[in-house]
């Protein structure tokens, strides 16, 4: 337990001093501010592009559009940033050899995995929470509040998808060596999931639904029942990925 606490503190210090915490917070806060503004300004932006006297009939943006924009930004750019920030989550420590002396000091390997997961989870959750709060505030200020069904469920889905990415990164880094191979393997896995979406009938089970159906859930375009299935599948995948990381890392030659 003392190993977990000490290593967890080290992880947090590392995120702060490597500027990773700063970047993640800034980027997500910017998304939280930008999405409502973009939604608000969309008609102006589009009308400026409508040259040759063609007038586009753009409906007035609403509360939904603001959150639609938010989910679009976070599920694409946000997840990309998440991948970059946590891409070296275990790989860097392993490839540089910085873990060797600590393991020789008696640091338990399970503590390494759990502390890394806990620190990444906290950083992701904090950044996401800031983004959501600011998004909420800006949206309330700029738009009239509308009843939004399943908004919190949608937000929860994207948060869970972030955790899914973190655990897949962690698992990939225990499986393959090299400073960035964990990142590559995870990107490949996500690519495979995207390809799988084209197989009819599979999309409702895919964790990707958690990052793609968020806006649809609010407007009723996506099936809530399917989304709940995807949530459970993702939870199972997260737990399994963590278990695999713990087992594989325990048996790894370092």
């Amino acid at each position: 337990m003392s190993g977990f606490t000490a290593f967890f503190k080290k992880e947090i210090v590392e995120y702060l001093r490597s500027y990773k915490a700063l970047i993640l917070l800034c980027v997500f806060i910017i998304f939280g501010m930008m999405s409502p503004l973009l939604a608000k300004m969309m008609p102006d932006i589009l009308s400026h592009q409508a040259i040759n006297g063609i007038t586009l009939n753009i409906p007035k943006p609403t509360f939904y559009d603001s959150f639609g924009q938010f989910f679009k930004n976070l599920s694409q750019m946000g997840m990309a940033v998440l991948l970059l920030i946590f891409g070296g989550v275990l790989s860097q420590d392993l490839s540089k050899g910085t873990l060797i002396m600590l393991l020789a000091k008696g640091l338990s390997r399970h503590a390494v995995i759990l502390a890394k997961f806990a620190a990444a989870l906290i950083l992701w959750t904090a950044s996401y929470a800031f983004a959501v709060m600011i998004q909420w505030g800006y949206t309330l200020y700029l738009f009239d509040k509308l009843p939004v069904p399943h908004l919190f469920f949608s937000l929860f889905c994207l948060w869970l998808f972030g955790i899914f990415i973190l655990t897949i990164l962690l698992m990939s880094s225990t499986l393959v060596g090299g400073a960035y191979s964990g990142l590559f393997l995870t990107t490949a896995a996500l690519g495979a999931l995207i390809v799988c979406q084209f197989i009819p009938g599979t999309d409702r089970f895919s964790p990707l639904a958690l990052a793609s159906d968020n806006a649809g859930l609010m407007t009723g375009a996506a099936n809530l029942h399917h989304a709940v299935t995807a949530v459970w599948i993702t939870v199972i995948l997260i737990v399994s990925a963590l278990a695999v990381s713990l087992v594989v890392f325990k048996k790894k030659s370092i």
Binding site: C26, I29, M33, M34, M41, Y138, Y141
Partner: peptide
């Protein structure tokens, strides 16, 4: 029609954050 200038106070924090990063 919203004017960009109306939204300026809301844009400033974004610019500030981006400047901090840069």
């Amino acid at each position: 029609m919203t004017q960009i200038s109306d939204l300026l106070p809301l844009l400033i924090p974004i610019i500030v954050l981006e400047l901090i990063l840069v």
